[in-house]
Simulated assay, not measured.
Amino acid sequence: MIKLTNVSKSFQTKKGTIPAIDDVSLEVQPGEIFGVIGYSGAGKSTLIRCVNLLESPTTGSVIINGRDVTNVSAEELLKVRRKIGMIFQGFNLLKTATVYDNIAIPLKLTDVDKKEIDKRVQKYLQIVGLEDKHDAYPGQLSGGQKQRVAIARALAQEPEILLSDEATSALDPETTESILELLLKINEELGITIMLITHEMNVIQKICDRVAVMEKGKIIEQGKTVDIYARPSHPTTKRFVNSTYHKELPPHVLQDLIQTGPVVRLTFVGESSSKPVLASVSAKFPVSPNILAGGIIALKQETIGTLVVHLHGDKEETIKAISYLEEQGVKVEGVEVTHV
């Protein structure tokens, strides 16, 4: 569906060449929701704008449905873009036009029949839950309603791909949740492939099948969302994942605990989440597990549980206990004392 191969993009400024994305390769499969996450300045927005050629890559190829679109004519590019909808953080609605007209005007510009326009506007307003707002103006709507209008406008073009550029970052948590539920509905019921960028890990957690993590213009890690959550390898990815758990312990508490045994973070996913493995530790070894913190993360198709545990006991026995936990499919990671 979408394949980026060795894509780089640089901008020329008075101070010289500024690289925005550097040798990025990724694939988005038909029907999935693919997320790209990174901190501010990571290159996410430039990357997603390369997909529909709002930004032309400096090098590399962008392949949509098997076709390299980086060298097509302006006419062919226009046809490609009509199959790619896009929603933005700022909504981009016409303030002086009604909700109906905000959705209808782009269709009029592409010579869609008037009856077809009316049919599509009504259909997609119903899908986004705003069928009673067709005569309202943007100034009369909440932020979440404005974003729903923007989504309906993108859907009215009946695209195969929907790009989301930080579409929820300006919304409050409750409204964000409702928009994410809507994107899930669109993906599942209409079969539209979604590629989104965000700096919020809860967005990835809620709806994404796979994720790529960006830093300084590069993809530093990518894979299934459940795998990234369960076994992040890059320090930046670990920071994103840990931000969803909120289980940092005060350094002085850790300092006292590690005198009598290691403090470890246990991650349970799949079969390991249904086994009473922690209860078995004290039965098999002279080690006393003391649970310090815990939480459950519900991903789109999987649930991951984590516990921060102090293993009180002899060093040799706690090593055996950790090996046993790993044999049972539990990921074990030491929690180190960080001095501020």
Rank of each mutant, 00 (worst) to 15 (best):
A156G: 04
Y229Q: 13
D132M: 13
N202F: 03
H134R: 10
G217D: 07
I194P: 02
E166F: 15
K224I: 05
P251L: 10
K185T: 06
A136W: 05
I204D: 02
E248P: 00
R153E: 06
E221Y: 06
R239N: 04
Y137I: 08
P159Q: 00
I207G: 05
L254E: 03
I194K: 01
E189L: 12
D172R: 15
E215R: 07
E189Y: 13
D227L: 12
E158P: 13
L130W: 04
L162T: 00
E131I: 11
L182C: 06
N202G: 06
R148P: 00
M214F: 07
L155Q: 03
I228L: 12
M195V: 12
G191S: 11
I151M: 09
K123D: 09
I219K: 01
E166M: 14
Q140H: 08
N242R: 07
V203H: 02
V253P: 05
T225F: 09
T168L: 13
G144I: 14
Y137F: 15
Y229R: 13
A154I: 06
I127L: 11
G191Q: 06
I228W: 04
G223A: 12
T236N: 00
E160N: 03
K146E: 08
E215F: 01
G143E: 05
Q157C: 12
T198Y: 07
I179D: 08
Y124I: 12
T236D: 00
N187K: 05
G129L: 12
A212L: 10
K238W: 00
Q205E: 11
F240M: 11
K206P: 00
F240Q: 12
R231I: 01
A136N: 04
K218E: 15
R239Y: 00
A154T: 08
E188T: 14
D172A: 13
V203M: 04
I151Y: 14
E166Y: 13
L171W: 07
A230C: 02
Y124V: 14
T244F: 04
N187S: 11
V149A: 12
E215N: 10
M214P: 13
P250W: 09
H246Y: 03
Y245M: 04
L190N: 04
L125N: 03
G217N: 09
I228E: 06
L171M: 08
S142T: 07
H252V: 05
P173V: 11
A170I: 11
E248A: 01
L125Q: 08
E188L: 14
Q126L: 15
R239F: 01
I151K: 10
G217P: 13
T168F: 14
Q126D: 15
A136D: 00
A167H: 07
N187L: 00
I204C: 07
H252C: 08
E221G: 03
R153T: 06
E160H: 02
P251K: 10
Q205A: 07
Q157L: 11
K216S: 01
A167K: 03
E189F: 06
P235K: 07
I204T: 08
R210D: 02
D165P: 14
I151D: 01
G139W: 13
I228M: 11
V128C: 09
L141G: 00
L182S: 10
K247G: 02
S164H: 07
K218Q: 09
P138G: 11
Q122G: 06
L125F: 03
K218V: 05
V203S: 04
I204R: 14
I220N: 05
I127V: 15
S164K: 13
Q122K: 11
T237I: 10
T236K: 12
Q222C: 08
R148H: 01
Y245F: 05
